[in-house]
Amino acid sequence: MRGKAQHIIHGLRDGFPIALGYLAVSFSLGIIAAKAGLTSGQGFLSSFFTRASAGEYGTYSLIAVKAAFAEVIAMCLVVNLRYMLMSAALSQKIAPGTPWIKRILMSFCITDEVFGISIAHPGYTPPSYMYAAALLSTLFWATGCAIGITAGSLLPQHMVTALSMSLYGMFLAVFIPPARRDRNVLLAVIASFTLSGICAVAPVISQWSSGMRTVLLTVVISAVAAWLKPIKSDDNGAA
């Protein structure tokens, strides 16, 4: 099919810059995974099937401190909650009559960036476009993590610390532009920084695991923000 081949080519073209970014970020994720005791094979599989920067960062940090299994589940649920909204939004972008298996496979492809280009695709998003972009970027993502686990220990500590900043840099690149566009997001970000800083030094709370603090702060701050500053009813929340 000519159309299908073209969708795949477009998917690879749009997925390539994402893949390059992923390679750099997942390398530093691999350094964290190595600290948690993962082998490069485990890192590759984990990154290939999870594909969640913040979720994996949280998971590896929890493994490093031997947290309870329930804590990993709670962390993944809250930190990846945005994928739920993205999946809901994506369900509106799939042509009617698309088989269920394709809809499910497309939902597996969701990451912040692949979701972004899929939603931006004019008209209905072709499944093969999304598969191509997701597969290419996922291969780079998993490879970067595996290399980070292996090579992270060979690099001088100073360089490892510097590279660990790339993950935080990526977080900033995701949440700062919306904060510039939407004043309410800016206020939520300022509240998050402030409360997160206080909780890290406050008595009792600072003794909780960072995963637990992340989950609680996210739920409380987002709920208060939704209550005080609900989005306009015609807004597309997934934007």
């Binding site: 977080f171 949440f175 997001v185 701050i221 939704a226």
Partner: peptide
């Protein structure tokens, strides 16, 4: 919808600082 809108930004901000 509002809650889900804020979640990604808040969770990333909380994990970035401190």
């Amino acid at each position: 919808r509002s809650f889900l809108y804020y979640v990604p930004y808040v969770t990333l901000a909380v994990m970035t600082f401190p």
